[in-house]
Design a protein around this nucleic acid. Sequence first.
DNA 1: GTCGTCTTAGAAAGGCCTTTCTTGAAAAAA
DNA 2: TTTTTTCAAGAAAGGCCTTTCTAAGACGAC
Lengths: 347, 347
Amino acid sequence: MVITERQTTLNDVASRAGVSPATVSRVLNGNYPVATSTRDRVLEAVRHYDYVLNVHARALIHAQSGILGVILADVSDPFFSEVARGVQSVTAQTDLLAVICNTGSDPDQELKYLNLLRTHRADAVILVGAGSEHPRIQGELVRHAEGLARQGSLLVFCGRPLPGGTTAAGAVDVDNHGATELAMVHLARLGHRRILYLAGPPANTTTTARLAGALGAAKKRRIARRDVTVRAGDLSRRSGQELVEEALSEGLDFTAVLASNDLMAIGALVALRRAGIGVPDQVSVVGIDDIPIAADVTPALTTVRLPMEEMGAAAAKLAVQERMPGSRSAPPVQLIERESAAPARTD
Amino acid sequence: MVITERQTTLNDVASRAGVSPATVSRVLNGNYPVATSTRDRVLEAVRHYDYVLNVHARALIHAQSGILGVILADVSDPFFSEVARGVQSVTAQTDLLAVICNTGSDPDQELKYLNLLRTHRADAVILVGAGSEHPRIQGELVRHAEGLARQGSLLVFCGRPLPGGTTAAGAVDVDNHGATELAMVHLARLGHRRILYLAGPPANTTTTARLAGALGAAKKRRIARRDVTVRAGDLSRRSGQELVEEALSEGLDFTAVLASNDLMAIGALVALRRAGIGVPDQVSVVGIDDIPIAADVTPALTTVRLPMEEMGAAAAKLAVQERMPGSRSAPPVQLIERESAAPARTD
DNA sequence: GTCGTCTTAGAAAGGCCTTTCTTGAAAAAA
DNA sequence: TTTTTTCAAGAAAGGCCTTTCTAAGACGAC
């Protein structure tokens, strides 16, 4: 182990092994014949210095960095962490380094990360989950998609629609609209007519799609628009709880809560329990996502399963294997009936 | 928007603006006076090409990449995602890109990522949570810590002890030993004498520390060693459930379950509920960590709070601000009494 | 009008690796 | 033995940016 002032370089290794830098490079990359004796001397020198290659020098030549960017709202939200897991299940088999970036749902932070990743010549970038519908943001996204394409990388939209006019990006679709539709139909079948819908933040692609699904299904099932109350939260457990507490304190009349994600549904469960309202005897609760914990709360949450891990894996495959604009559909959403929804009381 | 075959470079921008590359660099870095009219022309050209700087070329000069590596077992485990959030709360205020790498608890994967990050000339790397106690692995860790130090970066051990003989690394301590001690003392005070302890995987720093804490406290409280049954799981919810199901089917006699993390404790709750055993009336359950969901399961989980987010933030600060070997202690652990533990039945 | 001082910009080297093009030597073929 | 082929290794350019050193011009001061 030799301590040098500057970094150990390939040249250092070369001179210790008594060969040219080219030879060291070839040993390390293994794409060119090198005599065994030479190789051994080189490897000895590599070990001696504990030499590690400098990706930056290499990236300068190949214009590739081995980085796969994953931009999402918050790793600590199980929805996103499941997707991230799906991504990593694919990248773990490659030399790619998956870089997970938390935006905290801030579209500007999203753009900042996109720029940063572009700066790092990321081989691909996956944008997970909801996005802003603001035209400025969408425009910037298109710009970045094109920029990425120009540097031979791919931007993949996972679980959000492609901004209008993008041809340079990939997409993994998930049926947000169908998910809430399924949930609402289920509730309607159980006889619920007065529904509290817990929506996500406004001007957000997923919020819009899920709300439209819920409202569309309600209409089909002849539930009057005024009988479904829509309240907007921020998709956190706490916000679900607060929204329901508010509704309760206002004396709002509802027999079911349809939350646009499981975290808020779990918050709703907490609020109802605290208020002494039985679930599902008095009020039914349905979520969306089917995050792992949904099965373990009490009562176990009835929800609509989104194929989170599969979405992540599909996006990663699109990003790293195909490297081509195109789209894939994740497996269909699926109603998971557990204990939190039951027939409406008929009193 | 001009589509070029090769990437747009600083030279392209320079010639469009009619200046030298040096000037463009100076405009972009803003660390040298440039006349306003020149700057404007340069910025116009930058916008025209949608030019983004190449980090690799820059990293070649500065030997820094702006990357902070975070190596952890699994982002979808709330413990780790909370720590990750803590890290990102610090990096979000900088130009640093936090890179989260999932090892799936595989020590070799951990080393692989460490090497990869070294290759990328990461400015710092944080190793989160339990590590292998295997001497080979520990030795490799020391080697990487020194390698990182030599390239001006820092390796930080967050929530795991420094391998013996490391001087080139940072550390954020967390009191694993004290956590289980607290939990066990609590159980003992409630009168429990026959305890099922759900441990983590063997040969793992955290498993060892937590087990020692639990056993030490049991001894102090005069609980016979043979009255605490230790079963090893993999820290997943599912494994907690299975371990308790097994114990139950074997007719093991216990009045309390002490799980070495909350996820396993939640699994235990599920198993007990399925077996029709009342918690906490018949059996008490205590966890460790205090992950967010712990408050929302039924019964709400009594647990020992580990300052996860603070640990992440402390590690990030050590890594990016101080850039010096040294250690910090996270805030102390704390017993959170909720509903899953009650006095032992005296029958 | 000349000299000195700022201010602003350019030239060129340097940072680390890969790869194409060459070359030298050894092995195989004639 | 001579010629051709094969194998292994080196020389050097190139990739993109930063920064030191140098210089041109503008402006004030004397």
